[in-house]
Amino acid sequence: MKPTLYFCRQVLMYHLVMAAAVAADLLLVRIFGQDSIFFIYVNMFQYLFIMMHAIGTANICSLHAKLALGFGATRRQIVVGYTVVMVVSAFAATLLSVASAAATPLVLGPIAEDSMQALMGTAVADGSLWYMLIPMLGIGAVFGWVTILKNRRGWRSVLLIGMVMIAAIALWLVLPLVVLMMTADGDSDYLALLNIIRWVPLVSGLVLFAVFYALTVRALRRLAL
């Protein structure tokens, strides 16, 4: 229970900072207008930042998982705490993203339909929960587990997990940009495309998850839990 509370506390701070950053950016756009540089960051926050958020959360968790181990927490406690926090954090991040997407027009007023913002905003709103949640859980879990697993399994397996993870991030990051380029002229039915590609991260996220859990179960068995 203690590691769970401890992780939650650490992650909560991170979420609050993120929320403050989103709010501050919206305010800046409000002040300096939609043609200011801050406008670009609205998308960043809603789309890319959410992933940074996942990685950041996972990083915090993995650092503190190691510390908690040093302070006499059991591996079981850490696993439970870590999993709870990743799930809670994923929902919190999604909520934050949805809230900021909803708040954007409220704060900024109407946004031009053909602008990049609309495109990205729709991707987030339409791809919505699954699109963000699954890779986030997968990436985060792998990040944190690397720390725990590497106590048992050499660096080679850690590298392997790392590569899978990087591939997943790349896929997640690149696909929307491809869509963006393909639909730059404005005629293509990007929503239809999005409907297809949003399954890619979902599937890759699930695969990642499966791999991660298989490794975890194996590691736990070896750790005699």
């Binding site: 401890y6 650092l63 503190h64 510390l67 908690a68 040093g70 302070f71 006499g72």
Partner: peptide
């Protein structure tokens, strides 16, 4: 087990503040 901190200066706890480290002690011990 109070580890030697200096030996792992590049690892995570170097970025922590003294009070954060002690808070972990309060929480975990």
């Amino acid at each position: 087990f109070s580890r030697e901190i200096g030996a792992r200066a590049d690892s995570g706890e170097a970025a922590l503040k003294v009070k954060d480290y002690l808070r972990m002690g309060r929480l975990f011990y």
